[in-house]
């Protein structure tokens, strides 16, 4: 029963400025749904194994009527094959929706350049750089991530998964914020002494305010 109590804990509070379970964009939302499906499935499977173990120990006569073949083929082969096929298929379908495939209406590109230990953000349609990433809310944006030194990782948990900044490579992450607001980000790949403080934010603006806000930010960081 302790197990059930422990399993119920994550339900307690999911919110937080960096919580993956407090999503604020379609990518993070979909992944959070995947998580909850997996969570309940895992809880059920864990319970199943626990009950079988307890019965095998305390009421073996209830279970000994199943032959060894039935145990192994049923529990070891058929059950996990069904569960895994379903899960893997779902994850593939979701993955296909999240990857930055070319779209008819290609999203704007922004550039995240990582350094030991800060981020600089640039834009296709504007000169200059900002220290926080500014994006329009309600529409996808492709973040092109790279680095000038060691490996870093761009992660804004409430918007989407992460992508690594690898020297010599450019990786693209598609993010979208449902509503205007400030979404905190961290460097997720260990990058040396300043790893801990390599934080940043993605600031999503209402589309009509976006250009002006970004221009102001560029002006500020230029000073």
């Amino acid at each position: 029963m302790a197990a059930t109590a422990v399993l119920a804990l994550p339900l307690a509070a999911c919110s937080g400025p960096l919580s993956t379970l407090d999503p604020a964009g379609p990518a993070a939302s979909n992944i959070a749904i995947l998580w909850w499906i997996m969570f309940w499935g895992a809880a059920a499977l864990f319970l199943l194994v626990g009950v079988l173990y307890a019965l095998a120990f305390y009421r073996p006569q209830m279970l000994s009527r199943f032959s060894v073949g039935q145990w192994i083929v049923g529990g070891g082969l058929i059950m996990p094959t069904i569960v895994l096929t379903a899960l893997v298929t779902a994850a593939f379908v979701l993955g296909e929706r999240l990857i930055p495939k070319p779209m008819e209406d290609q999203p704007p590109r922004v550039y995240a350049m990582a350094h030991q230990w800060n981020w600089q953000f640039g834009y296709d349609d504007a000169e200059g750089q900002t220290l926080q990433l500014h994006i329009p809310a309600g529409a996808p944006v492709d973040v092109v991530v790279t680095t000038s030194d060691v490996i870093h990782s761009f992660w804004v948990p409430r918007l989407a998964g992460k992508v690594d900044a690898i020297p010599g490579h450019e990786n693209v992450l598609r993010i979208e914020a449902d509503r205007p607001g400030t979404y905190r980000g961290v460097c997720a790949e260990f990058c040396g002494d300043g790893h801990t403080r390599m934080r940043f934010a993605v600031i999503a603006h209402a589309p009509e305010d976006y250009e002006a806000a970004r221009a102001a930010a560029i002006a500020r960081s230029g000073r």
Partner: peptide
Amino acid sequence: LFSLGPVLFLTSCY
């Protein structure tokens, strides 16, 4: 079949 089957339906280069 299980681990390589995805070549049948997933996008290959993104």
